[in-house]
């Protein structure tokens, strides 16, 4: 293996700056799309099951089991029906995002005090109005924490999607791994890995801001 060469790495970056940035953006986009889909599915499933103990337990258990499927295996399984590329990647990432989002939605909705629900009912709010203007806003910070966890999880897993010719920084890592021994192998792998880490930090910082901006001041501790 070639020894680490900082000057070489910097040259590598300056030459391929455009490519790296594009892969980073792709990586971010695929994660955001998957999160959005998972959020819609997860929050709806959570809203339908939070007050039904058995369905809620089944949903959480199922999402938990799903998380234990190795990502490489899941991606391989998805190639057949959905082919290589974006579709398979988005499906896999959505799949892994569901557990934290569903679980936090259920936990969040359950934490709304019964007295708050009773007074909402006593004031003449119907079930849908109660859900949309009382329960969801109160559960929101907890739901958003679930989405934040899902984001960290999928930013990592998305790197593996390059295996099914998916988008993102995984391409760099796989390039490096498949050209071991060549001059730039380490640079490829290192750049991909660093990119994933930087992206994860940026997204997490963004979520801290989003949570702050979208949570009622009355709910902040």
């Amino acid at each position: 293996m070639t020894p680490f060469d900082l000057a070489g790495l910097l040259t590598f970056w300056s030459r391929r700056w455009d490519d790296i940035l594009e892969l980073m953006v792709e990586h971010l986009v695929v994660v955001l799309i998957s999160l959005a889909i998972a959020m819609v599915i997860g929050v709806v499933v959570g809203m339908l099951t939070w007050n039904k103990p058995i369905p809620a337990a089944i949903v959480i258990a199922a999402a938990g089991v799903a998380l234990t499927i190795p990502s490489l295996a899941l991606l391989a399984l998805l190639i057949r029906p959905f082919g290589l590329g974006w579709t398979s990647t988005v499906i896999a990432l959505t799949f892994y995002s569901l557990l934290p989002i569903v679980r936090n939605t259920i936990v969040g909705l359950r934490e709304v005090p019964p007295s708050v629900l009773e007074s909402a009912m006593g004031m003449g709010m119907g079930p849908i109005k109660r859900m949309m203007s009382i329960q969801l806003p109160i559960a929101w910070p907890i739901i958003l924490t679930g989405v934040r966890v899902a984001a960290q999880l999928t930013i990592g897993i998305a790197a593996i999607a390059a295996y099914v010719a998916g988008p993102g920084l995984g391409t760099l890592i796989f390039n490096g791994l498949s050209s071991l021994g060549s001059k730039n192998a380490l640079n490829f792998a290192l750049t991909g890995t660093l990119g994933v880490i930087i992206l994860a930090l940026l997204v997490d910082a963004a979520f801290v801001q989003i949570t702050r901006l979208t949570t009622s001041r009355g709910l902040r501790a």
């Binding site: 005090p113 708050v116 629900l117 007074s119 909402a120 109160i138 009622s216 009355g218 709910l219």
Partner: peptide, 8 residues
């Protein structure tokens, strides 16, 4: 328990 809406 009053049940004021904490987010309002």
């Amino acid at each position: 328990q009053i049940g004021l809406f904490p987010h309002m």
